[in-house]
Amino acid sequence: MNSICCKIEKVTPFNDAVYQVLLRPQTPLAFAAGQYLSIVMDDNDKRPFSIASAPGSELLELHIGAAVSESYPMQVIERLQHSDTITIEAPAGNAFLRHQSPRPRLLIAGGTGFSYIKSIIEQQMALGLQVETLFYWGCRTAEAMYGADMVHQWQQRHPWLHFVPVVEQAPANWQGKTNLLLAQIKQDFVSVADYDIYIAGRFPMVGAAREMFREMGVDEAHLYGDAFAFIK
């Protein structure tokens, strides 16, 4: 893992709870789609965030969910807003895209887990892959789904990508699904045995997903999520 100083190019809100961060590393960083970096707050405080940009990007993009009530990520945002540079440690994570696999892909994001999925989809597009890919993104509200317009545009340009937005509280004109994320997936699939599954989100959701997938015949050699390293 490398320790790299980065210039802080941009810290702007997507909405009232999620910030986009753009970092310019002083030395090039080689990483795989789906890996993460750690923001070094101090020698004993290193905070992990998925890299939202695809490999080869000039800038490193992060999506940090930092509602006022969540002090842990908000401390990172405040540090970034009041600094010119920040040190990162990267790359890390084993849940990166296995781009040579021909199996269909099921991508799942809860909230800002979209940052992880964004890197994977952008890498698939960059490599010209045609593997059938279903992307389920779950949020509490439609307003929280800050990248939905971007994903709809990807879907229009790439027939292999199928986007299923899922919200718990839907507006009157909602075009997606209204449900809990995992409940919707369970409703839509009888078995997930044939899929490569990539998942990111809050640990309780990811842990519950693994138990659900086991009941649905998952091949755990093809189930990828860095949260699993911390969930027993």
Rank of each mutant, 00 (worst) to 15 (best):
M1E: 13
I4N: 06
K7W: 05
I8F: 12
K10W: 11
V11P: 08
N15P: 13
V21Q: 08
L23K: 01
R24G: 01
T27A: 14
L29H: 05
A30I: 05
G34V: 09
Q35R: 08
Y36I: 12
I39K: 08
M41K: 11
D42H: 10
P48D: 04
F49S: 11
F49V: 13
S50G: 06
I51T: 02
S53L: 00
S53G: 00
A54V: 11
P55H: 09
L59G: 00
L62Y: 07
I64S: 13
A66W: 03
A67Q: 13
Y72T: 10
P73L: 01
M74F: 05
Q75T: 02
Q75P: 00
Q75K: 06
V76M: 11
H82W: 00
H82Y: 04
T85P: 03
E89C: 04
A92W: 14
N94Y: 09
A95V: 00
A95C: 01
A95D: 00
F96E: 07
F96P: 03
L97R: 09
L97W: 08
L97P: 06
S101Q: 12
S101F: 10
P104G: 11
A109D: 01
A109G: 07
G111L: 04
T112E: 10
G113Y: 03
F114D: 01
I117W: 01
I117C: 05
K118S: 13
I121Y: 07
Q123I: 02
M125F: 15
L127F: 07
L129C: 12
E132N: 12
F135A: 06
A144H: 08
G147Y: 13
G147M: 14
D149A: 14
V151D: 05
W154N: 06
Q155R: 05
H158Y: 14
H158S: 04
P159G: 12
P159Q: 11
W160Q: 15
P165S: 02
V166Q: 02
V167K: 01
E168G: 08
Q169A: 10
Q169C: 05
A170F: 00
A172E: 12
N173I: 01
Q175V: 03
K177C: 08
N179L: 00
L180N: 06
Q184M: 11
Q184R: 12
K186Q: 08
Q187W: 00
V190Y: 12
D194P: 04
D196W: 10
I197S: 07
Y198P: 06
M205E: 02
M205Y: 00
A208V: 00
A209M: 03
A209K: 03
R210L: 11
E211K: 14
E211V: 12
M212L: 15
G217L: 07
V218C: 07
V218S: 04
V218F: 05
D219W: 04
E220P: 10
A221N: 14
A221C: 06
F228Y: 14
F228H: 08
K232C: 10
